[in-house]
Design a protein around this nucleic acid. Sequence first.
DNA 1: ATGAAAGCGCTAACAT
DNA 2: ATGTTAGCGCTTTCAT
Lengths: 348, 348
Amino acid sequence: MAANRRPTLADVAREVGVSAKTVSRVLNEDGPASAETREQVLAAVAKLGFQPNLMARNIRVGGPDTTVGLVIPDLANPFFGAVARAIEDVVGDRGLTLLMGSSADDPERERALTDKFLARRVSILIVVPSVGAEHSHLKSHRTAGLPIIFLDRPGVGLPADSIVSSNRAGARDGIAHLIAHGHHRVGFVGDLPVKLYTRRERLAGYRAALQEANIPYDRSLVANAHDQPGAQAATAQLLDLADPPTALFAGNNIMALGIVAELARSKRKDVAVAAFDDLSLAEALEPALTVVAQDPEELGRSAAATALARLDGDRSRARTISVPTRLIIRGSGEQPAPKPAEFVTRSR
Amino acid sequence: MAANRRPTLADVAREVGVSAKTVSRVLNEDGPASAETREQVLAAVAKLGFQPNLMARNIRVGGPDTTVGLVIPDLANPFFGAVARAIEDVVGDRGLTLLMGSSADDPERERALTDKFLARRVSILIVVPSVGAEHSHLKSHRTAGLPIIFLDRPGVGLPADSIVSSNRAGARDGIAHLIAHGHHRVGFVGDLPVKLYTRRERLAGYRAALQEANIPYDRSLVANAHDQPGAQAATAQLLDLADPPTALFAGNNIMALGIVAELARSKRKDVAVAAFDDLSLAEALEPALTVVAQDPEELGRSAAATALARLDGDRSRARTISVPTRLIIRGSGEQPAPKPAEFVTRSR
DNA sequence: ATGAAAGCGCTAACAT
DNA sequence: ATGTTAGCGCTTTCAT
């Protein structure tokens, strides 16, 4: 009825009539133990419902916990879900358990979470840095041998391994694809805040592609949004411009949802579209959505593998690993650009 | 350079020239402490990069850890991601940290994960039971006062709170919608294994709707798949039957992806479709996808709230809470049923 | 306002 | 094959 104290090693030992150490030995398959003792101990464990206190064990053993801490911005974003699954697969093979929590992209929550993980002595810390977060406080842990990996975005104030997508090149490829189909006015719908690493990199790729095609950068073609409804509104606004874009590029998967939703709502099939990051239904859209696909599995695997190598003593310089993206052409980028008659011929 | 030992309370105490207990007092804002001592301690903590060992603290204090353990089948499924986010929001307000891991729907991995959580003395355990898992071993923990909640599916062998969607009624509504538009041959694409609780409940809803409309159950219209490609293949097979379905119902979000993908691939717009669980792009499809939407946020909130009530001493009988679904009609269910003459000619 | 000693549950290092 | 002692890093209890 009442919350009775949980049984301890000593309780089991008393039940059987042996010492605590003997029970410990049986449970950890440490030193020898007679078959009879073992059985009695196991029986008592089952009878009492004993569950070893891992915290007490870890504190005595001194080593780190067999746990990997992962901080992501949003549990509900399938991109991070895929990354997390890949990490879990890799570290699971080493007997490590993945524990994850979300920062909601808030530096304070990120700090609180990492502190909790550190206080729990995780073996590995993998963080998707929040905008505005600073990481120099992790320096001592890193020098003390704790592998720290930044994922999707680089950390700030701490030389540590980073695993990122090749955002700039990927975005450039996507934009170039649109330009190749005759589009000179390409809208960019990016996420917020504008200081976000991935956002900046992808916008840089956008500008690079324009430059390569000798198309001037027009600030009014760049829109921002926090979420899908915002992206939807931003799309509507862009298309409402006096001199509107004939093609749109989504800065991430959420922005893509907004763009696609708005084009479907307004029944606009004449706008070419490409998006950064793949969507599960991209192929079923009409036209099917052309994307710059990231490789979340590879990001996760690479992060986990790098961390494990560090755990095994790799003390080489911190690396930044860039995971390539892949342009998947499905059709939405090939909507033809309207005849130039529409606007004044621009010099080139 | 080498992995130097992490500083402990004693190290900080030595640095300042006070006792360990004084440092402890300052850090936990326990007893009194002179302003000067406090500052010195805080300075030393910062200087040494001291991070209290939470495991050591918990072991001494004896209470449970300020942690909630969540076991889900798949980190990359956005449905569970949304549920997890809702749980985190609720328990976070109580200062609890959500830790989650995935069972891959494997009873053994589920057991290993729950054992780890128990060994870490989580305050709350929330589990999406794997198929074939048995939970009577959790009984002693529950009687010892640990809140245990089953999510999405009921547990086996243990009376504990369960939070589930109203699967049966939801599926019935979805099927009834298809039948109302003239469809008498409705295919069901369900996930595997067929023993899965949600799968069984939704199929029961399917059968109930047929019965209410006096349509005989035709086993050949029920297909199964593990994943999206499987669902795609199953869809193709169903449509290839001599007497094919004129409407399809997806048993979950993944199956829906497969059905939609296959219909897009084969350019079949004449098949009516409805799906259990919403998809992010459902509105942008042509026709837009009619769904029986679950409420993952409410599932998560409800699970968390129930758990917290238990933590606060609620000792009432275990409840099963059913979270209603909502039929969202978007058009895909209203494709007209073909005239009976049509499929006679389709003898190829 | 601060400190000393004891102990949380467990295991390392020595016994026997 | 098993038991004893000490101690992990922290907090409780009781001093001072």
